[in-house]
Simulated scan of single mutants.
Amino acid sequence: MSSIESTELKVSCLGSSAVLCESLGPLDITCQARFWALAQVVSRWPEVAEVVPGMNNLMVVLTQGEAEPLGVVEKVRREWPHVAPAHAKGKVVEVPVVYGGDGGPDLEFVASHTGIDVETVIKLHTQPDYTVYFLGAHPGFGYLGGLDSKLHTPRLDKPRLSVPAGSVAIGGVQTGVIALTSPSGWRLIGHAEQDFFDPYREPPALLTPGDTVRFQCIRAER
């Protein structure tokens, strides 16, 4: 893999079909917003077929047979210092949550792992305004930035094969809501009733990058 590094950005060739741009700085919303802006610029280049934003990174898919990967690497490297954060004017999505109980079987584990009582875990989880960095993993799943560092909890060693849609979960340094019933190794701390993905709705996904998510505790169950 060829790569070129700058103070803040690493740009690598993914074979001959794509280029990966990764932040070398901290995981934060300012950097994420720069990647949103970079995606807007790069998507207009004739040698680019598609851009796929990720968590503080951007994959650039090249037009087959017409693009020279190393040339695109150089163009991205030159463009990055001039890209200003694109602050998306997203909507606010309020998410009522029942914490613990059958829908949040890992709430007690999170409390034990972090050394915080359950009530404080819920309080810390509902305090921030979370920003939707990007959608991925499965349709409608938003990776949220803003989880209090006191709640950082490792994922399960062995993922569950089926996690219900609407499950509110913590995975490492992030939190989110499982949008479709699917396998997951994230820690389940509660359940929300909203449909985060509906193929018959327009748009199908409830969340979009730049949205703000606010969790609200309806009640806590044991």
Results as ranks from 00 to 15, higher is better:
residue 47 E to T: 04
residue 48 V to A: 04
residue 48 V to I: 13
residue 48 V to N: 03
residue 48 V to W: 11
residue 49 A to I: 08
residue 50 E to V: 07
residue 50 E to F: 01
residue 53 P to C: 09
residue 53 P to H: 06
residue 53 P to K: 04
residue 55 M to I: 14
residue 55 M to D: 07
residue 57 N to K: 09
residue 57 N to E: 15
residue 57 N to F: 02
residue 58 L to K: 05
residue 59 M to W: 03
residue 59 M to D: 02
residue 60 V to H: 02
residue 60 V to F: 02
residue 61 V to R: 14
residue 61 V to M: 12
residue 62 L to M: 09
residue 62 L to I: 01
residue 62 L to K: 04
residue 62 L to C: 00
residue 62 L to T: 02
residue 63 T to W: 04
residue 64 Q to K: 12
residue 64 Q to N: 09
residue 64 Q to H: 13
residue 65 G to T: 04
residue 66 E to I: 04
residue 66 E to A: 14
residue 66 E to Y: 06
residue 67 A to L: 05
residue 67 A to Y: 01
residue 67 A to V: 00
residue 67 A to W: 00
residue 68 E to D: 14
residue 69 P to E: 07
residue 70 L to G: 08
residue 71 G to W: 02
residue 72 V to E: 00
residue 72 V to Y: 07
residue 73 V to L: 11
residue 75 K to R: 15
residue 75 K to E: 13
residue 76 V to Q: 01
residue 76 V to K: 01
residue 77 R to K: 08
residue 77 R to P: 01
residue 80 W to Q: 11
residue 80 W to I: 08
residue 82 H to Y: 13
residue 83 V to G: 03
residue 84 A to C: 10
residue 84 A to K: 13
residue 85 P to N: 12
residue 85 P to V: 10
residue 87 H to D: 06
residue 87 H to K: 14
residue 88 A to D: 02
residue 88 A to H: 09
residue 88 A to I: 15
residue 89 K to Q: 15
residue 89 K to Y: 04
residue 90 G to Y: 00
residue 90 G to K: 10
residue 90 G to V: 08
residue 91 K to F: 03
residue 91 K to H: 14
residue 92 V to W: 00
residue 92 V to E: 04
residue 92 V to G: 01
residue 93 V to C: 11
residue 93 V to Y: 07
residue 94 E to L: 00
residue 94 E to K: 14
residue 95 V to N: 06
residue 95 V to G: 09
residue 96 P to G: 12
residue 96 P to D: 10
residue 96 P to M: 08
residue 96 P to I: 08
residue 97 V to D: 06
residue 98 V to A: 09
residue 98 V to F: 05
residue 99 Y to M: 04
residue 99 Y to S: 05
residue 100 G to E: 01
residue 100 G to S: 13
residue 100 G to R: 02
residue 101 G to N: 12
residue 102 D to H: 13
residue 102 D to N: 07
residue 102 D to V: 03
residue 103 G to T: 11
residue 103 G to S: 11
residue 104 G to P: 07
residue 104 G to Q: 08
residue 105 P to G: 06
residue 105 P to K: 10
residue 107 L to Y: 04
residue 107 L to S: 08
residue 107 L to N: 07
residue 108 E to S: 14
residue 108 E to G: 12
residue 109 F to W: 11
residue 110 V to F: 06
residue 111 A to E: 11
residue 111 A to N: 10
residue 112 S to F: 01
residue 113 H to P: 05
residue 114 T to Y: 05
residue 114 T to N: 13
residue 115 G to Q: 09
residue 115 G to A: 03
residue 115 G to K: 02
residue 115 G to L: 10
residue 116 I to G: 00
residue 116 I to A: 09
residue 116 I to V: 14
residue 117 D to V: 14
residue 118 V to W: 00
residue 118 V to K: 14
residue 118 V to L: 06
residue 118 V to A: 13
residue 119 E to A: 11
residue 119 E to V: 03
residue 121 V to Y: 12
